[in-house]
């Protein structure tokens, strides 16, 4: 079976220990998480976790079932079957000097990213997008020297209704 990335969204109670329960589950069962993002929903008692997990269909099925089995998990969605939007926010610190800075700024403009810090030998750029966009952006900046990358992890939401 094919290994691929799956976007799972879980509605959970917003209380202490829930994140630990989920990470314990993933660790104990040997599932690989690419990223995990947690935040409050419109209801402050409930949080939404977006989990990017790698594995075949069988692993995905088990992950969904095991998550559902946790008492603190209210609902689990898997987004690959539904139209949805994914976003990841990245802050990237890249080396820059007066010779190449304008080139970098050109790339930033094309990607509709923002420069949020300007230093004599580096820039910090904020960029939001899906996986492909961020990967492409990183690849373009690599030749200039990437000093640091920070990402929030992917969050996802279904289109329409």
């Amino acid at each position: 079976m094919n290994e691929r990335k799956h976007t799972i969204s879980a509605l959970v109670y917003n209380k202490s220990g829930v994140l630990a329960r989920i990470s314990t589950l993933f660790a104990a069962r040997g599932y690989n998480i690419d990223s995990l993002a947690v935040g409050e929903t419109e209801n402050p008692e409930i949080s939404r976790m977006t989990i990017i997990v790698r594995g075949d269909e069988k692993i995905l099925e088990q992950v969904e079932k095991q998550l559902n089995k946790l008492i603190d998990v209210i609902k689990v969605y898997e987004y690959s079957k539904t139209e949805h939007i994914e976003r990841d926010l990245m802050l990237i610190k890249v080396s820059a000097n007066k010779n190449n800075r304008s080139e970098i700024i050109e790339i930033v403009e094309v990607f509709r990213a923002d420069i949020v810090d300007f230093y004599h030998d580096s820039l910090i750029i904020e960029i939001t997008g899906d996986e492909d966009k961020l990967t492409a952006f990183i690849n373009l900046l690599k030749p200039y020297g990437i000093k640091e990358v920070v990402r929030t992890g992917i969050v996802a939401i279904a289109r329409g209704k």
Partner: peptide, 11 residues
């Protein structure tokens, strides 16, 4: 009664 038991080892 536990869906996680089903198709965990044998489909």
């Amino acid at each position: 009664i536990d869906p996680t038991s089903i198709s965990k080892n044998i489909v």
